[in-house]
Nucleic acid binder design. Sequence first.
DNA 1: CGAGATTCATGTGAAGTATACCTTTAGGCTTAA
DNA 2: AAGCCTAAAGGTATACTTCACATGAATCTCGTA
Length: 401
Amino acid sequence: MSKKLTDFLQNYLKKKSIFKNKKALQSNYTPKNVPYRGEQINQLAGILAPALRMEKPSNVFIYGRPGTGKTLVARHVINDILKIAKENNINIKTVYLNCKLKKIADTEYRLIAQISREFEENVPATGLPTDEVYKIFLRSLEKKKQILIIVLDEIDQLVKKIGDEILYNLTRLNSELKESEVSFVGISNDLIFIDNIDPRVKSSLSEEEIVFPPYNAIQLQKILRQRSSLAFFDSIIGDGVIEKCAAYAAREHGDARRALDLLRVAAELVERKNEEKIIVDYIDKAEEKIERDKVFDVVIAQPKQYKLTLYSTLQLCNGNNKGIFTGDIYNTYRENCSRCGIKPLTQRRLSDIIAELDMLGIINAKVISKGRYGRTREISLAIPEATVENINQVLKEGLGL
DNA sequence: CGAGATTCATGTGAAGTATACCTTTAGGCTTAA
DNA sequence: AAGCCTAAAGGTATACTTCACATGAATCTCGTA
């Protein structure tokens, strides 16, 4: 190890961190109290409380824009219920699942398999019939009398992808159970989601509804202050920093997660620069970085073929801002395939991949008709200009080009 | 000139295929009585 | 004879391919004013 590096690491260890508890700013942190969500907490607690008497709670749907505290409130209420249940020896179990996660809960099979794994069942990734997995799950649930509360986050994404039949199957679960009972808490960012599903399913799965309004700037400030007092040592935050974070996040339909991310990333930048105070300028830098990282993380998590498709799109968009079409991308894609020795997929499949990249918000794809010249998707990038080059770089390396 | 037919390039649905993995079953081998 | 291992048979989910038909406005065609 070089002298320089050793020194750096030594110093790093000695240096006092500006964070008291960095976790308090991370998005999966559950604070002790949740400001401005008292009403929603009471509603949800009221709905779920019957579980403590071993009665099945009503199913609930929770709606609200991103970053309005839906997941947080659900976690909070459930934690408390679990705590009380434990103190009083009541048999309640809860499962939290994010339906958006690729390869984990993005199909009916995987969803049920994942829930079953929470019961220490060993369910293979493929090979079993889906109803067999249902049986494993039900059997496991019936081993002893209990109330199960399943929280399905971003359930709208799942239904968009595989259709609403799964919801119907979920509603029927209780009729197969003798001892235990299951309740669902569905969380959705899409406010009109429930209107587009089968009315029968709707009535049984959405017995109750809770709506989360966005936070306003004042509320965001309060939240930020509360969390930052947990996260930082005193007097680290400069004037106007909190206000600016709140203002930026309020602009994005009151997204508290974004506000907290801004503050955290800004602090990380400060720390890395060996400075001691967060000043307003860092918020702008943080904003840029978040924007960049957000796309980065999504892109990096994609399978190879998706990356290659995106890379080809990037190539075509570069410097050429008149619309590009599916056919163009496919040609470029094929070239790139042969360059890095990957077997090309069919255009049919690429069409689906483009649609998925569109859903992920990395590109904008709109089906248009060019009249005499056919029908196609008109595609443009949804990535901020400044990050294109970076992403291009990462893709290039990832694909060995 | 304008209504209706044509056309193109690809969207899109359905069905088929490859792969990877599962359970069941039957046969063969080992083991212990 | 009982127990265990292995391989074949028969099954599924998922990602992808193949096939076939659907789309929809620019362009073409042709009858009419």
